[in-house]
Design a protein around this nucleic acid. Sequence first.
DNA 1: ATTGATAATGCGAATCATTTGCATTAATAA
DNA 2: TTATTAATGCAAATGATTCGCATTATCAAT
Lengths: 137, 137
Amino acid sequence: MKLELTKLMDPGSRLTEQRALIYKIISDGGQHLDADEIYSRARQKSARISLATVYRTLQKFKQMGIIDELHFGQEHHHYETRQEGEHYHLVCRSCGKVIEFTYPLSSKIKKDVMEARDFKIVGAEVNMTGYCRRCRK
Amino acid sequence: MKLELTKLMDPGSRLTEQRALIYKIISDGGQHLDADEIYSRARQKSARISLATVYRTLQKFKQMGIIDELHFGQEHHHYETRQEGEHYHLVCRSCGKVIEFTYPLSSKIKKDVMEARDFKIVGAEVNMTGYCRRCRK
DNA sequence: ATTGATAATGCGAATCATTTGCATTAATAA
DNA sequence: TTATTAATGCAAATGATTCGCATTATCAAT
């Protein structure tokens, strides 16, 4: 268990099997999983995990800033590891597929809004909906 | 009950007291209410309404396109009447206040993304978080 | 390596948001 | 005025997430 995750733990926190597994699932487990999906993938790897732990871990990772929570308008949330560059999401209204796209909004908009509304922006979530090529035909 | 809401009803739909009341509450009831808040305001006006009706009505209005659902990262959603111009939201991480701001993203970004990813955008939700002036001090 | 303090877990129950089934009420077209 | 049936209220059901608590296991200090 020699993940770089170790370094990320706050003092007083512990690196457990479950946490390492959850982090692994989110990072290489494809795109934008939700808690239930993370849970069932974790179960396949190790029976020693509960849904409550998944939720608690997600909260912790979010606070630590190593994952981000996404809100696609469903009753539950999705998660991704924190990325380097600015990127946002396109959600197909027909098939539900999520496509990432990079777009340099941040710098310009942050500056404008900061000046106009006296509001310090620290995070942004941009979700656009529409129809992907396949579904448009 | 001679609201312009009448016109908005699909054929086969009915304009009820509850629907008119809910619409009124959302439109002049200030900012971005959630279902529970709409329900309790409705109760004060008329005892003749249930939470289930609030939820059913919200769904219907959303489908009709007369309100929009907002996702501020909480476990429940918020609602606003559909606006004319493009506008997005700033949410203060400290006090929770929501500030609207207009910003002409749409045209430019839609075009770029449409071309680059072959995706037809029909809606966008932009939520930025940070700290309002009051909370920054 | 051994151990002790306590963070984290698993489990089930609790809570919160939303939806659904069904009998009753009421809007609207004839 | 009345018949059709959409919409409502209520209570129970469902889905997502959180919490309490006894047990387990990580990590720091022997």
